[in-house]
Design a protein around this nucleic acid. Structure first.
Lengths: 222, 222
DNA sequence: TCAAATGTTTAGGTAAGACTAACATATTAA
DNA sequence: TTAATATGTTAGTCTTACCTAAACATTTGA
């Protein structure tokens, strides 16, 4: 049975698989804030229902079924976030937590109804790509602002959605998907950078910069 | 802790209290499809957190807090139903089941946002009154169609929302809140009645008639 | 007043998942 | 190539949040 907890593990496994290629007990443990022993137990359970391939001491891999389920949940999550912002007018930084709850209870066809009302959006309010109904995602090869070159114009593609506090802060500084941005200078020692966002000068911490992603295609030389 | 299960008990207790005045273990057991022994256990737990007053072998009563919580859930449930019909375009007979899941996860302020989007409706799609933010309800003194006089015009006020099958059937026959209706004749032996709904003649089972309520005020003599 | 109906207690079960401590395997660095 | 360190697994418990059957207690009403 795919419980809410299993769904959360699936999201985490998928995320780590995308992020770093290999998924380990310890990474899951850290991400989910669950002790390694418990993670092993759950992983075995999930392998038992064919959501992932597991051999002791080896890296964990999603099966085709597991990947399908993971993308399904991601789709729900991101459509719900979009719905909450676009239709219900919730602030950008609140929708993640709310979607974390909704994603486990909203019926499939109600999710599809949301998609329809929204005009089948390709990205959620943070710029993350929404998998389509068949589980296809266009893997965004966005560049973290922390690795983006200085003095080059870029368009913000995505802003990580986990931390409501940070999101509020970024939103207040005009940092949202679609906005033009340029790094003026980096003070590596101080852990900050000076940028312009939609023409205005801002100081941004390195920590925050890691959560902001720039679209690679639309970057232009100065 | 008010779990989803406690919320369901609260709804049931409130419902029975309205319905018949006194709430007993056996009635709860029957309504919730949970064995009497289990109901006693849960009732004790709920009394422990001050949701209801309980003394062994005596009838169960909601405390002020319990009543407040029950009305809060009822408000959520009915607002969500309205939202699903009005904003999301779900069919009338599907919203009850969906709302049963949503009501336990949607945040308070998101529920209020729904209310606002809907223009603070007073009734849900089945005609049931929606308690206001402070837990006030206008107790509808509607008359079941099974007790309604013959040859008197009435306006449908409410249609019970539990059974999707029955709702679909009633909707197909034009039986919805707001529609004008009149009983032509009752064949008690056959367990059916002949009625006109918005001018059209229909046959209705007694079972179905129990689920349809007529507004008392707008009844007119022939 | 006493049987039937209703309600409660007791003792135990289940599902779903988390935890600690001890043990096993891998990885790395000397 | 062998330790030492890091990582992962097993075994055994615990928790939460219910639910159940069976035996017992109380109330009710014929």
């Amino acid at each position: 049975m795919i419980t809410a907890s299993v769904e959360n593990y699936l999201k985490a496994v998928y995320y780590l698989q995308e992020e770093s290629g290999d998924v380990s007990t310890s990474k899951l443990s850290e991400l989910l804030k669950i002790r390694p022993a418990s993670v092993t137990g759950m992983i075995k359970k999930m392998a038992g229902i064919n959501l992932l391939v597991y051999q002791p001491y080896r890296t964990i891999k999603l099966t085709a079924k597991g990947r399908r389920e993971a993308l399904k949940i991601l789709r729900r999550h991101r459509l719900i976030e979009s719905f909450l912002v676009e239709i219900m007018g919730l602030p950008w930084n609140r929708v993640h937590q709310e979607a974390e709850k909704w994603e486990h209870v909203v019926s499939d066809d109600v999710v599809e109804r949301m998609a329809q009302l929204l005009g089948n959006p390709k990205h959620d309010p943070h710029g993350a790509p929404i998998p389509n109904k068949h589980g296809a995602v266009t893997p965004s090869k966005n560049i973290s602002l922390a690795e983006f070159p200085v003095a080059v114009d870029g368009i913000i593609a995505e802003v990580d959605d986990k931390n409501a506090e940070l999101l509020r802060y970024l939103a207040q500084n005009g940092i949202r998907p679609g906005v033009r941005l340029r790094i003026i200078s980096v003070e590596a020692a101080g852990g900050v950078m000076t940028i312009t966002v939609a023409g205005k000068k801002r100081i941004l911490s390195e920590k925050a910069a890691h959560k902001v992603y720039i679209s690679p295609r639309v970057g232009k030389q100065p």
